[in-house]
Amino acid sequence: MTLVFDEICIDAHDIHALAAWWSAVLGWAAEDTADGDVLLSAPPGAGPNWLFIPVADDKVVKNRIHFDFRPDDQAAEVDRVLALGARHVDIGQGDETWVVLADPEGNEFCILAAD
C-alpha cells in the first residue's frame, strides 16, 4: 500500500476555538503549526491527527462525512459533550441507537451506543 491515512482536515471559522473544543472532547493535545493551522495530535492507536484549517465560508448543509464515536457509557458521554457546548441535531435520523450532535461550528457527529 502506498497511502497512509495521516490527517483529517477540518475547515473552521475560528480554528483555535474549535480545536480547543475538540481537544477537550477527545483529550488530545492541540498545537499551532508553522502554516498557521492548529493540529490535534492523536495518541497512538487513536487514528489520524486532526488539522484545523481557517476558512471564511459558512457551513450551510449537512456534512457529507462525519465522525462516529463509541463510548463506554453513551448517556454519560452525551451529557459531558453537551456540557462542553455540543447541541442535539435532527438530520432526519428518527429514533436510533446513536445520538447525533453538532460541535460549536455545526459539524455533525454521532455518539454510538456502547458495546
Results as ranks from 00 to 15, higher is better:
Thr2Pro: 11
Phe5Ile: 11
Asp6Tyr: 00
Asp6Gln: 07
Glu7Ala: 10
Ile8Val: 12
Ile8Lys: 06
Ile10Arg: 04
Asp14Phe: 11
Ile15Ser: 02
Ile15Trp: 07
Ala17Ser: 14
Ala17Gln: 14
Ala19Gly: 09
Ala20Tyr: 10
Trp22Ile: 06
Trp22Ala: 09
Ser23Gln: 10
Ser23Pro: 04
Ser23Glu: 07
Ala24Asn: 13
Val25Gly: 02
Val25Cys: 05
Gly27Phe: 09
Gly27Ile: 06
Trp28Val: 10
Trp28Lys: 09
Ala29Leu: 13
Asp32Gln: 12
Ala34Pro: 11
Asp35Leu: 12
Gly36Asp: 00
Asp37Met: 08
Asp37Phe: 12
Val38Lys: 06
Leu40Tyr: 10
Ser41Ile: 01
Ser41Met: 14
Pro43Gln: 07
Pro44Lys: 14
Pro44Glu: 15
Gly45Ile: 08
Ala46Gln: 14
Ala46Lys: 14
Gly47Glu: 00
Trp50Asn: 00
Leu51Lys: 08
Leu51Thr: 00
Leu51Cys: 05
Leu51Gly: 07
Leu51Ser: 06
Phe52Asn: 04
Phe52Ile: 10
Phe52Arg: 01
Ile53Trp: 02
Pro54Thr: 07
Pro54Gly: 09
Pro54Lys: 01
Val55Thr: 08
Asp58Cys: 00
Val60Phe: 14
Val61Glu: 15
Asn63His: 10
Asn63Tyr: 13
Arg64Gln: 11
Arg64Ile: 11
His66Ile: 13
His66Asp: 03
Phe67Asp: 01
Asp68Gly: 05
Asp68Ala: 05
Asp68Ile: 01
Phe69Ala: 01
Phe69Trp: 11
Pro71Cys: 04
Pro71Phe: 04
Asp72Gly: 07
Asp73Lys: 05
Gln74Val: 04
Glu77Asn: 00
Val81Asp: 07
Val81Pro: 02
Leu84Lys: 07
Leu84Cys: 03
Gly85Ala: 02
Ala86Thr: 07
Arg87Ala: 09
Arg87Ile: 05
Arg87Leu: 02
His88Met: 05
Val89Lys: 10
Val89Ile: 14
Asp90Phe: 10
Gly92Asn: 15
Gly92Val: 11
Gln93Phe: 15
Gly94Ile: 15
Asp95Lys: 15
Thr97Lys: 15
Thr97Pro: 11
Thr97Asp: 15
Val99Lys: 02
Val100Lys: 08
Val100Ala: 11
Val100Gln: 07
Val100Cys: 12
Leu101Phe: 04
Asp103Met: 12
Pro104Thr: 08
Glu105Ile: 12
Leu112Tyr: 09
Ala113Met: 09
Ala113Glu: 13
Ala114Ile: 11
